[in-house]
Amino acid sequence: MAASAHGSVWGPLRLGIPGLCCRRPPLGLYARMRRLPGPEVSGRSVAAASGPGAWGTDHYCLELLRKRDYEGYLCSLLLPAESRSSVFALRAFNVELAQVKDSVSEKTIGLMRMQFWKKTVEDIYCDNPPHQPVAIELWKAVKRHNLTKRWLMKIVDEREKNLDDKAYRNIKELENYAENTQSSLLYLTLEILGIKDLHADHAASHIGKAQGIVTCLRATPYHGSRRKVFLPMDICMLHGVSQEDFLRRNQDKNVRDVIYDIASQAHLHLKHARSFHKTVPVKAFPAFLQTVSLEDFLKKIQRVDFDIFHPSLQQKNTLLPLYLYIQSWRKTY
């Protein structure tokens, strides 16, 4: 089996927390979720979201995140109150960019949308954001926290390059993509939290790379249903696996070995980020709550012996909000 052949990389499970039942964490995340308004986002309300009498641009960002990046939404709820709305805006910006690729039928249209967001970032730093909910909220975040323009532009530029429907040539190319998107998002989150620390940035770099790799793995069944495969070609070739094997949902050992190798790289990034947690300011830990969902996925895929098409991998963990709150309460990542 794939797991038994390579099992030495995987460390002990961390979500089991001995003695936790003896201490009762304060009510927090679930209460916040219940208090949030929840009407559906419609095209009509989106168009009017920044106008008078609408929910408001902040509510639009929150709803977009809740629907399109639920794990990011849950993590954002546990940030300090003064930072929450800015991170909602930042993550909503990322969602807007991420959904361009799947929402257009022609690359030219995707490039036009990316050009809109490039100009939007430029206009935000000229205090002239367009009348668009996410743009307005992002402008507020930039003004409030003096966010670095370079990180925002890196996210747009990398998403634009990724409009080509090509597999990553190697794991390094996937890591570079993750660094310029997910890690950049974390650098900006640290700025919102008021953290300027080399060790925190180092952790953000590795956690962002782990996030990018896990996202690529999780999306494999969806991409396969659209006749697309984006997994690193070098690892596929190493194990003699073709793109057609993934399109046919082949579950042979060599296919699972490909998934094992890729998942192991995410695991190593996560492990390395945690190896120097004592040197990272505690104030930075809330920015890294996504490690909970990353670890949850890596454990699940290990349990199914790296069968990327196993139905259990597509099921939401209903206990994730609780695990996130516990992680926040324990002040760790």
Rank of each mutant, 00 (worst) to 15 (best):
N162M: 10
L111R: 11
V258F: 00
S103C: 13
V214I: 10
A135F: 04
I308W: 02
N317T: 15
R84G: 03
T148F: 01
L198A: 05
L324S: 05
I192R: 05
L320K: 02
D245M: 12
L64K: 13
E179L: 03
R66H: 08
L138K: 02
K196R: 15
N146A: 12
H59D: 10
Q132W: 13
P129A: 10
Y177H: 07
R330A: 08
E179D: 08
N128W: 08
V229A: 13
L188D: 00
A266Q: 01
R113V: 07
S205N: 10
A135G: 12
G224D: 06
L322N: 03
V46D: 04
F309C: 07
D197M: 04
Q132K: 07
R274L: 00
L185K: 00
I171A: 04
D127S: 08
N170D: 15
L238Y: 12
A263T: 07
D296W: 09
A98M: 05
A273G: 10
N317M: 10
E175C: 05
K140D: 01
S105D: 15
T291H: 02
D234W: 01
S275T: 09
E82C: 15
I301P: 00
H131Q: 09
L193C: 10
T181A: 12
P130N: 08
S242W: 03
Q302Y: 06
S225G: 09
R113D: 05
P80K: 07
Y323K: 11
E191P: 01
V255C: 11
L190P: 00
V46I: 15
A284F: 01
P133E: 08
D164S: 15
N94G: 05
A219V: 05
F309M: 09
N176F: 13
Q211M: 14
R249I: 09
K140N: 08
G208H: 01
L65S: 09
K299P: 00
A54C: 13
E106D: 13
F88K: 05
S205W: 02
P52D: 11
R249F: 12
L319D: 03
K166Q: 10
S184C: 14
Q290D: 08
I326L: 14
W329I: 09
Y60D: 07
W139F: 11
E122L: 13
V229R: 03
L298G: 02
R256G: 04
E175I: 05
D234F: 00
K119N: 10
T332R: 13
H269V: 01
V258D: 00
N146I: 05
L74S: 02
K67F: 06
W117S: 01
V304K: 04
G208N: 00
Q290E: 10
S86H: 11
S45L: 07
Q243F: 04
G194S: 07
D127F: 02
Q211I: 15
P129Q: 08
I207D: 01
L320N: 03
L90H: 00
V104D: 10
R249E: 12
D102F: 07
Q211V: 11
H269F: 02
A89S: 07
Q182H: 13
A48V: 09
A273T: 02
D201T: 04
Q251W: 13
K209Q: 06
Q302E: 09
L238F: 09
D102W: 07
D252F: 14
K228D: 09
P321F: 04
V214W: 02
A200D: 01
Q211Y: 15
K283N: 15
P133L: 05
K253M: 15
E158G: 14
Q211L: 15
L78Y: 06
L270C: 03
F297V: 05
A284K: 02
S275P: 05
R150C: 05
Y70F: 11
A210V: 04
S293R: 04
E244L: 04
P52S: 14
L138A: 00
C216L: 14
W117V: 02
L64H: 08
V241S: 04
N180I: 06
S45H: 15
V100F: 08
L231A: 04
S103A: 12
I259R: 06
K316P: 09
F93N: 00
G212P: 01
G110P: 07
Q99R: 10
N128C: 14
K154S: 08
N146K: 12
S50A: 15
L77R: 02
E137K: 04
F230A: 09
W55I: 15
L174V: 07
L64G: 03
L324R: 03
V156F: 05
A287V: 12
E82Y: 15
A81Q: 15
D69T: 00
T57A: 10
D157P: 00
T291V: 07
A204D: 00
D123S: 12
K161N: 11
L198D: 05
P129K: 11
Y168K: 01
V142W: 05
E122A: 15
A210N: 00
V121A: 02
A203I: 06
R169S: 09
N162G: 14
K196I: 05
R218G: 04
P232K: 01
K209Y: 01
Y73A: 03
E173F: 02
R91A: 05
L268W: 08
L313W: 05
N254D: 15
K140W: 02
D245L: 08
E244N: 12
D201H: 05
Q211E: 14
K253V: 14
I262K: 01
R226Q: 14
I124A: 05
N317G: 09
D252P: 07
S264R: 08
G56W: 14
T279V: 15
Y168H: 12
D69H: 06
Y222P: 06
E160C: 12
I262M: 11
R159F: 08
T318Q: 11
I259S: 03
L163R: 04
N170T: 14
G212C: 06
I213S: 02
K172S: 13
E122R: 11
Y323R: 12
G56D: 08
I136A: 11
K271F: 09
L152W: 02
V134L: 13
L268Q: 11
K172P: 10
Y325Q: 13
P80D: 12
R227Q: 11
G224L: 14
C126K: 15
P130Q: 08
D305Y: 03
S105F: 15
P129F: 10
R303G: 07
H223E: 15
L90T: 07
T220N: 03
L198W: 06
F88V: 14
A89M: 03
D164P: 15
N254K: 03
F246A: 04
D58F: 11
V304L: 11
A141W: 02
D201F: 05
H202A: 06
N250Q: 13
Q315I: 09
E295N: 12
A200I: 01
R218T: 04
L231V: 12
R330V: 08
V255F: 12
Q132R: 09
L313C: 08
V121S: 00
K140L: 03
V292W: 13
K101G: 13
I308P: 11
I259Y: 00
N176I: 14
K154T: 06
L289R: 06
V156W: 04
